[in-house]
């Protein structure tokens, strides 16, 4: 990937991050930590890799994304709004009664959402089903899946890990958003998931581990995964929960927190002044 493209992606990610902070701040509360840790991967997928069309969100031949950590919905809504799946004004309706943008992803309410998620662990099975359906129909498209690190405590993740490898789902590319925090504390203190590389390897997946905020690294990993002939891919993303929001980053309480709108706006401004943001952390 050319430097110019990386710069464009970085600029886009900044925009998406601002939109996400703004939407949660406007509401006053939300799952900001786990939304901000996946901004870069979502930006990369939707800007560069995924074949989707906002004018026809349900076209049969398309790449699909299952965001199993459904509480990251607000980040996904920002990129979908930016792509034109729905008006950007919707972002200020997050969690309002009757909204099309609920806290957790809902395929029946939000254009561009491919699977309803929210009960952790379930997205991997759904992604397997979609990958199997694609194979049956000869649809040469990918199913992308994002799971959380805390979510990896769920037994269903490992049932799915076994099945995807068994069915040789090379059309499935998964990511673990390894932001090292879960609701009650640090993952290694609450329920350690390590050694993640070894675990996914042992289950028969093609495993890579990269910086989840670095476009160049992630892009190379995705391109390698796309060339896999037999195995599903797991790309473990080292990320920072609450990345980029001065009030949330590295704050153990950032899973679902109150956010004052002025604070949110201040956080968006700081994103334009990296030095000041660095000092504020």
């Amino acid at each position: 990937m050319e430097i110019e493209e990386v710069k464009q992606l970085q600029a886009k990610a900044k925009e998406i991050r601002k939109m996400t902070i703004d939407a949660i701040g406007y509401l006053g509360v939300g799952h900001i930590g786990g939304a901000l840790s996946v901004v870069e991967i979502l930006t990369l997928l939707y800007e560069k890799h995924m074949d989707v069309s906002p004018e026809n969100p349900r076209k049969k031949h398309r790449d699909k994304l299952v965001i199993s950590k459904g509480h990251a919905g607000p980040a996904l809504y920002s990129i979908l709004a930016d792509k034109g799946f729905f008006p950007k004004e919707w972002l200020h309706t997050l969690n309002a009664g009757g909204t099309n943008l609920p806290s957790h992803c809902d395929m029946n309410r939000t254009p561009g959402i491919d699977m309803s998620t929210g009960s952790l662990g379930q997205g991997i099975s759904a992604a397997i089903g979609i990958a199997l359906a694609n194979r049956l129909d000869g649809i040469d498209k990918k199913v992308y899946l994002i799971i959380g690190d805390g979510e990896s405590n769920e037994g269903q993740i490992w049932e799915g890990a076994m099945a995807a490898a068994h069915f040789r789902l090379n059309n499935m590319i998964a990511f673990t958003d390894y932001n090292k925090m879960q609701i009650d504390g640090y993952v290694h203190e609450i329920m350690n998931v390590e050694d993640l590389n070894a675990k996914w390897n042992a289950f028969g997946w093609f495993v890579q581990r990269v910086n989840g905020h670095d476009f160049q690294d992630m892009n190379m990993a995705i391109e390698r995964a796309q060339k896999e002939l037999y195995r599903p891919s797991m790309i473990i993303l080292d990320t920072i929960k609450g990345k980029g929001a001065f009030f949330a980053e590295r704050n153990l309480a950032n899973h679902n927190m109150n956010v004052n709108y002025e604070t949110a706006q201040e956080a968006c401004r700081l994103l334009d002044t990296p030095d000041a943001l660095e000092k504020s952390l």
């Binding site: 049969k60 299952v66 395929m107 491919d114 699977m115 662990g121 379930q122 991997i124 099975s125 759904a126 992604a127 397997i128 089903g129 979609i130 990958a131 199997l132 359906a133 694609n134 049956l136 129909d137 037994g155 269903q156 049932e159 799915g160 076994m162 099945a163 068994h166």
Partner: peptide, 20 residues
């Protein structure tokens, strides 16, 4: 899917999402 009923139902949901 082997002895993994929860995964079976989740995979079934995914197959349905894929039109099956």
């Amino acid at each position: 899917v082997g002895v993994a009923e929860a995964n079976m139902v989740g995979v079934a949901a995914g197959l349905s999402a894929g039109g099956k």
